[in-house]
Computed example of a mutant assay.
Amino acid sequence: MNAAYALFDTPALDEGAIIARHAPLVKRAVRQLSSQVGAVLEREDMEQVGLLALLEAARRYGEPDEQFTGFAMLRIRGAILDELRRLDWRPRSVRQDAHRLRDGWRALTRQLGREPSEREAAAALGISLDEVQALLLAENAEAMHSFDEIVANGGDVGDERAPEQQLQLRIALASALRHLAPREQQVIQLYYEHELSLKEIALVLELTEARVCQINKAALKKMKNCLAATPD
């Protein structure tokens, strides 16, 4: 068929309908992330960024099917976190404090022979409990963005989607999930599958939000390592 005629045979996407139908994805992503970064970016601004990402996802994906939700959610979350990076939401001083917290936490764990509490970490480092929790939340958001990028890149095969590549990615993710400890699996599933916020997960598991961040970050690191070791 002549390429000029083929253009007329391709139905145009009803972008307005797609956005209206999938707008709740943006609300979910904002709800998930707002407790960690709400002080930096207002919810309304996060939603605007998310809606633009949803539109871009629809244009790249084509007519939505049952896999579109996961595809779009990754890009919505990624766009919001990209905007936060652009706003320099973690200035150098915060990054330095995060490194100090991480090193201090490891040293305290070795000293105590167990995971320290947030209060113990705050006392050992000479900072407030609020500062410890804020640093843990910021580090977790970075870890989520890094993991989302790996999943998005693994499933992004250009304008033509390859079902076999998507299947390989899902198998690799399932395998990576099986390598996690039971509590880590719970956190990952509640966040990515059931789309609860970290605050909601903390209530379900009767933990602090910062502790959920730690578990989530450790789980994502293990999964990233598993995915990196998976042959293409």
Rank of each mutant, 00 (worst) to 15 (best):
I171G: 10
D97W: 08
E160F: 13
W105K: 12
L74Y: 03
D103T: 12
A219H: 04
C213A: 09
L129I: 05
L220H: 08
E149T: 07
M144L: 14
Q214F: 03
I201V: 12
A12G: 04
Y5V: 12
P24Q: 07
L190D: 11
I215P: 09
R114H: 06
D82A: 15
T69H: 12
Q214M: 14
V49N: 05
L203F: 11
E115I: 02
T10E: 14
G62D: 11
D130L: 08
Q168I: 11
A181W: 15
A29G: 01
A162I: 09
Q185G: 14
D148Q: 10
G50L: 03
E160C: 08
A98W: 09
A123N: 03
A72N: 07
A4K: 09
S175R: 11
E164N: 13
A98Q: 11
E184V: 03
D82L: 09
N225Y: 13
V132L: 12
I201Y: 13
G70D: 11
S197M: 03
A3Y: 02
A123V: 01
E47A: 07
A58G: 08
I18M: 01
E47Y: 02
A143G: 02
A12T: 04
L190F: 14
L25M: 08
G104H: 01
I18L: 05
M223Y: 03
N153R: 11
R21H: 07
E47F: 01
D14F: 00
I127V: 12
R28I: 02
E56P: 00
L13C: 07
G78L: 00
V212K: 10
G154M: 06
Y191W: 03
L84E: 02
H99T: 10
Q67H: 10
E142T: 14
T230M: 10
L203E: 15
L84N: 05
L74D: 06
D148R: 05
A134Y: 00
V30Q: 00
H179L: 09
E56S: 08
V157G: 13
E47I: 01
N140L: 08
L41I: 03
Y61D: 03
A3T: 04
L137M: 11
V212D: 15
F68Q: 02
L81P: 00
C213G: 14
Y5G: 01
